[in-house]
Design a protein around this nucleic acid. Structure first.
Lengths: 242, 242
DNA sequence: CCCGGACCTTGATCTCGATCAAATCGGAAC
DNA sequence: GTTCCGATTTGATCGAGATCAAGGTCCGGG
């Protein structure tokens, strides 16, 4: 009832009215009143590819929604070996509730636009809006599923299967309608070869060789290193090992 | 107030009064009234090492708390390659909310005792008890941290570092007081060499060779294949690559 | 005590992906 | 256009871990 009224008096904050992820992101769980309270303290910003959003072991004072672009989450061993442990796409929520500091660092893989909130404001709102907590739980469970699926890729797949799995992952995230039945799919890789290697647990050289191999077998076309065309998704999927 | 009264009229279900994980598990978020409602439909059971708790792609109709023992979560590729994607210890909650079927299979690595609940009963209670949802969110976030930490192990560590990392993981889970400052730590491995290989993304032979190597360097002692003694945790930690 | 089967270790060899080392490409600045 | 520099590709070689193949150990049951 209250909810019903709120929907009609359309005092949704200006910032949110034009928001790309208004309904898909965690904000979708808030009523207009809560949205107004949160919007007061939130701010949009753009960051360039390569910029660090927050570092490992660094106190994190804000959460963010990703509005566009791709963010990579990385962990680094003491001797410098690096592994990307997650990729986040719009409208993912960025940040680790219940902990003052993250144990991953987050870096913009592409140009990224964000909507950031003070950590404390969201933490407070989580207590009042159970729907918010539920959205976070759902996203976290999905990320856990993704992480576990990727553990199989890291632990058991060959280099060729890893690269094919990566291309499928990106194709599905960039263009959710891409599917094995459909014909040609085109997308831009959000990652450099070095990033791909860091995500796949391989070296740059191996990634490059496997990409070349997929191209020479006619599974993919490569334009300017970044633009990928997949004529037949099923053929690519057949090489992913799943 | 209501809460305060409830605590004193100690009508906590008999089943729960003796529960090993009463306060540490997700049930700790429930008040006695909710606990009674849930206990009506819950049941304790023991399963032998090796038994499958639920399979991949199989509809799951119940959740469980692990009361004792270790459960392994595995994923299998179409050609049979297998990867353990998580280990669960008491008092972990087992099950995937918001999804009818799991995409991992769960198997008892050791003898395990469980307390199981019908999925529907817990799902209903999650709506009413926000504390329950918050506990689940916290556990899920912790599991996501664990999964990401393990991705580094799978993607970037050498066989020697993987085995050392595994021993540290087990030592810390079996005996939470084990720490680098302290002297001797003794524990039983909950996994066979084959399971260790499946968790580490290695073969049985490589795991065995690395264990032998750690023994011959005096980092660990091995008794009957399963009982491990670590005289100096710091020496083991130094070999984990972190 | 002896047997049988599962689990584990050890050895020899092979192979995939890492490493080392040059080219070559692509795009931004001028 | 030309230059330059980081990103990528390609080639040659190496080596960690897989694979193939025996043995050895542990433990429960007759």
């Amino acid at each position: 009832m209250d909810q019903r009224l709120d929907i009609h008096n359309s005092d949704v904050p200006v910032l949110c009215q034009a928001c790309e992820v208004r309904h898909r992101g965690v904000c979708g769980a808030l009523n207009p009143k809560q949205l107004i309270a949160l919007a007061k303290t939130s701010s949009r910003r753009k960051v360039d590819a390569g910029a660090e959003l927050f570092g490992d072991k660094e106190p994190v004072v804000s959460y963010s929604n990703i509005l566009s672009g791709v963010v990579k989450l990385t962990k680094t061993l003491s001797d410098g070996r690096e592994q990307i442990v997650g990729l986040q796409f719009a409208p993912d929520f960025l940040g680790r509730p219940f902990k003052a500091e993250s144990d991953v660092s987050a870096e913009a893989a592409t140009d990224v636009s964000l909507c950031s909130f003070p950590k404390a404001a969201v933490d407070r709102m989580m207590q009042e809006a159970p729907g918010l907590e539920q959205r976070l739980l759902k996203q976290t469970l999905r990320q856990l599923d993704d992480a576990r699926a990727w553990m199989v890729t890291l632990g058991r797949k060959t280099a060729a299967e890893k690269v094919a799995s990566f291309l499928l992952l990106i194709a599905h995230n960039i263009d959710p309608t891409a599917d094995s039945d459909r014909g040609t799919t085109v997308f831009d890789l959000p990652l450099t070869r070095a990033d791909m290697a860091a995500f796949l647990g391989l070296t740059i050289e191996t990634v490059s060789r496997q990409m070349t191999r997929l191209r020479s077998k006619g599974v993919i076309q490569i334009e300017n290193n970044r633009r990928i065309t997949v004529d037949n998704m099923a053929r690519l999927a057949a090489r992913s090992g799943d």
